[in-house]
């Protein structure tokens, strides 16, 4: 998979763009009849694979691999869902409704409701609307995704100074990008960062949804996905 990497001055942003994983496709079980449960099973399988890819992606964020293993784990344990959801948001930007979890898995509002994901649908659509209004670029989206992980407010951080330096590096990269590419929009970095509370809210709702679905034994979930759900709340 090759990426059409544009000529971007900032090395961190360039590295983030180059590390963007190829989009995954949903793999619905061909023999199971369509149902809300099948939709959920397909979604959980997709998210588990996204999670694997995301952990690999995190290693390529400039500065991440310099953190201790304990801190890498801490950031991923608190920020994984935010990073996953930003991918969904990015993919859904072209649509005026629905959530595009994959090219072949687009869920509209009634489908989300029937699958028990309505409380996730509403904040995510609000987030998508915000990014549509901002006309967010791919560079900004990848920077925010890395920042969501870096800024995940993990509780058990071993070396707080290292995490702060990691955050600063990403923040500087975004500021540098905006100065060079969007000089006329002086408040743009602030506007982008002000979307992050809604992302966190969406992430909490998503975790609650999936935990509930697991507790109700509705959907079989992969071990990694369960392990990560276990770290939240």
């Amino acid at each position: 998979y090759t990426h059409p990497v544009k000529s971007i001055h900032n090395k961190v942003i360039s590295q983030l763009l180059a590390s963007e994983p190829a989009p995954l496709r949903a793999s619905p079980d061909p023999v199971t009849p369509d149902s809300d449960l099948k939709t959920l099973m397909t979604l959980c399988d997709l998210l588990n694979r996204e999670l694997l890819v995301m952990i690999s992606w995190a290693k390529h964020i400039p500065g991440f691999s310099s953190l201790s293993l304990v801190d890498q784990m801490a950031l991923l344990q608190s920020g994984w869902m935010e990073a996953l959801l930003l991918c969904v948001v990015w993919r859904s930007l072209a649509s005026t409704q629905g959530l595009e979890f994959a090219e072949n898995l687009h869920l509209n509002e009634p489908q989300c409701k029937n699958a028990g994901l309505l409380e996730l649908y509403t904040p995510l659509r609000l987030l998508i609307d915000k990014y549509q209004q901002l006309n967010i670029s791919h560079e900004e989206a990848v920077a925010l995704r890395a920042m969501a992980l870096a800024n995940s407010d993990a509780e058990h951080v071993e070396n707080g100074d290292s995490v702060l330096r990691f955050q600063d590096g990403l923040h500087e990269a975004l500021q540098d990008y905006e100065v060079n590419e969007r000089a006329a929009e002086t408040h743009r970095v602030g506007k982008l960062l002000m979307t992050l509370p809604l992302l966190r809210q969406s992430s909490h709702r998503a975790v609650q949804c999936f935990r509930r679905l697991h507790i109700q034994h509705l959907v079989p979930m992969h071990k990694l996905f369960l392990e990560m759900l276990d770290t939240k709340i």
Partner: peptide, 19 residues
């Protein structure tokens, strides 16, 4: 880390976490 064995293993792997 005991509770999060898979994440721990994936991060320790030097190769991309693809499996």
């Amino acid at each position: 880390t005991e509770r999060h064995k898979i994440l721990h293993r994936l991060l320790q792997d030097s190769s991309p976490a693809d499996g």
